[in-house]
């Protein structure tokens, strides 16, 4: 009896209790939905299968025993070294694992590292050539998308992975939002480029573009900076100075009213004092 009641309580609690996500703690709770959207695209979405061949069906039958087994498609855990953010690897990354080179031998640790090459990519919107570290897959993807800008704009952040690509994407979006100012000397080309790429703008609002491609710490510091700018503390000395000036002004106007009251006419004993006179005079 008691145990079932405990179970029920646990069930109820587990339904009501919500674990705090990273967006619920501290200053992160003030991040705008625009950044949450980017974060979702970057970290929550499942990246495309690059290092394994996904199987289509949901179930498969064992040929020997006729047993039905579920198809799992577990992605291989990837290592993202710091260098991944200095190039555009097209979703490839480093794999850490083991190789079984012979049945007679112990398995050997092995790192599978993508073949990197330095090449030039051309960005039409930015009107520049860039020298970047890429893999063959990146070049294939650029070709499949008919251009570097199309590749960046069409690919979600989880597949771009590298910060370089995300920053470039953000810059391209800003450029498009401003109507390609780099082609200001050639209005016809400017219009052509804008018309070619403007479809991508429809999926972002200006605020989302502003918050696109920011790392977690960049986003947090952006929030902190905004907050600081909003309630910037006014130094007390300024407030007091203002009050004093007002007071003095008020006093002056009062003084004018009481101008008729001369000091000499007052009978106060203080006025008779002459601190600079001689001693015996006093």
């Amino acid at each position: 009896m008691a145990s079932s009641r405990i179970q029920a309580t646990v069930r109820q609690l587990s339904n009501t209790f919500k674990k705090k996500s990273r967006f619920d703690i501290g200053i992160a709770s003030e991040l705008p939905p625009a950044y949450k959207k980017f974060w979702r695209e970057w970290k929550v979405l499942k990246p495309a299968a690059v290092h394994f061949i996904p199987q289509e069906s949901k179930w498969k039958r064992d040929e020997l025993t006729g047993e039905t087994l579920p198809v799992q498609n577990v992605p291989i855990p990837l290592k993202h070294p710091a260098e991944i953010h200095e190039g555009i690897w097209g979703g490839e990354a480093v794999i850490k694992g083991f190789q079984k080179r012979s049945d007679q031998r112990r398995r050997v640790p092995h790192y599978w590292v993508p073949v990197l090459k330095r090449t030039v990519v051309r960005s039409e919107v930015l009107n520049t050539h860039l020298s970047v570290t890429v893999t063959d897959r990146t070049i294939n993807l650029i070709n499949d998308h008919y251009g570097f800008d199309h590749y960046l704009l069409k690919t979600p952040a989880c597949d771009l992975v590298s910060m370089l690509a995300l920053k470039l994407k953000k810059q391209i979006l800003i450029e498009l939002m401003n109507g390609c100012p780099r082609y200001a000397n050639n209005p016809q080309k400017q219009k052509e480029i804008y018309n070619e790429y403007k479809t991508y703008l429809s999926s972002y609002t200006p605020e989302e573009i502003e918050w696109y491609g920011l790392t977690w710490y960049e986003a947090l510091s952006k929030v902190a900076k905004q907050k600081e700018a909003q309630n910037k503390p006014v130094p007390l000395k300024n407030i007091y100075r203002k009050k004093l000036v007002e007071k003095l002004k008020a006093a002056e106007s009062e003084d004018k009213n009481d101008a008729t009251e001369e000091i000499s006419t007052t009978t106060s004993w203080l006025s008779k004092m002459n601190p600079f006179g001689k001693k015996d005079e006093a």
């Binding site: 061949i53 291989i76 850490k96 083991f98 190789q99 398995r107 092995h110």
Partner: peptide, 14 residues
């Protein structure tokens, strides 16, 4: 365990 991370090269697309 380590034995769960033994991989085989299926195809080198390069």
């Amino acid at each position: 365990r380590g034995r769960h991370f033994v991989y085989d090269l299926v195809e080198d697309t390069n």
